[in-house]
Simulated assay, not measured.
Amino acid sequence: MKRSERRSAARLAASQALYQMEIADKGLADILAEFEAHWIGREIEGDSYTPAELAFFRDVVSGVLRDQLPIDRGLDDALAKGWPLKRVEALMRAILRAAFYELRNRPDVPARVAVTEYVDVAAAFFGPEESGMINAVLDALARQTRPAEFAGGR
């Protein structure tokens, strides 16, 4: 399996783990252990979960928790006025947080790759309107966070 496929699976798992942490009030150690033991790379009720790059998964989940305050502030600033992050559906919040963490902290991942990957995660759970909103927010954040990658119309 290609590294890009393992990274895609890690992004999906990280978004789901962050969501589950929020709704079930689980801690970092518990959620990492649960996902690594029971979800990532397993078959559950006929659904196969692709093996993920575990170090990348751990980095995104733990990084979002470590940097959640500045991540949330940045997302609040990028969202439409009158629509703060706390009003966004929990899974959408998890996806936005994971993506913004990558944009802020993973220069080894091209901004366009991070945006596309998380829009794909959103499309797996939401319709085109919600995925489009996530795309717009992440594109604005990517251009703000990594302007050099977008200089000259590239």
Score class of each variant (00 low, 15 high):
Y19V: 01
M133G: 09
V119W: 10
Q144S: 15
A124G: 14
Q20N: 13
Q16S: 08
D76G: 10
D139R: 12
P110D: 12
G132T: 09
M21R: 10
D25G: 11
R104I: 00
K86A: 14
P51K: 13
D108M: 05
V113S: 14
D120I: 07
L96C: 10
V115A: 07
F35C: 01
V137K: 09
P147E: 10
D120R: 15
A90D: 14
A148F: 04
L85T: 10
A10T: 01
G132A: 08
L54E: 12
R93E: 08
S48Q: 13
L75T: 04
A10C: 00
N135L: 13
S15P: 04
A52C: 05
L12Q: 01
A10M: 01
I44Q: 10
E102F: 02
L32P: 09
G132V: 04
T50G: 01
F100P: 00
Q16C: 08
L65W: 07
L91W: 13
E53G: 00
A17S: 05
E89A: 15
V64Q: 03
V64C: 07
I31M: 15
G41P: 04
V119I: 11
E45P: 00
E117L: 07
I95H: 08
Q144L: 12
E117P: 02
S8T: 09
L28T: 12
F56H: 12
E34F: 13
L69Y: 04
V137N: 11
H38S: 10
S48E: 14
A124M: 15
R87K: 15
A55G: 07
E36Q: 12
D72Q: 14
T50N: 06
L96S: 12
P128D: 11
M21Q: 08
Q16T: 00
L69Q: 11
I71W: 04
L54K: 13
A10H: 02
L18E: 02
E102A: 09
Y101M: 11
G27T: 03
P70M: 03
S4E: 15
E117H: 08
S15D: 01
A151S: 12
A14F: 03
R58K: 07
Y49N: 10
S62M: 03
G46E: 03
E5F: 03
R154T: 10
V88A: 14
V109Q: 13
I44P: 00
L85W: 09
G153M: 06
A78D: 07
L96F: 12
L18C: 02
L91D: 06
A98Y: 08
A114Q: 04
H38P: 01
K86W: 05
R143E: 14
R7K: 11
L28M: 13
T145D: 05
D59K: 04
F126A: 10
K81A: 15
S4D: 10
K26D: 11
I134F: 01
S48T: 14
A13E: 00
S48N: 11
Q68A: 05
G127N: 08
A111D: 02
K81V: 13
A13N: 04
Y19L: 06
Q20A: 14
L79D: 13
P84K: 15
W39Q: 14
R104H: 07
D76P: 09
E45N: 11
L138T: 13
S15K: 05
N105T: 03
E36R: 12
D25F: 13
V137W: 01
G127K: 01
Q20Y: 06
D72M: 02
R143W: 06
P128W: 00
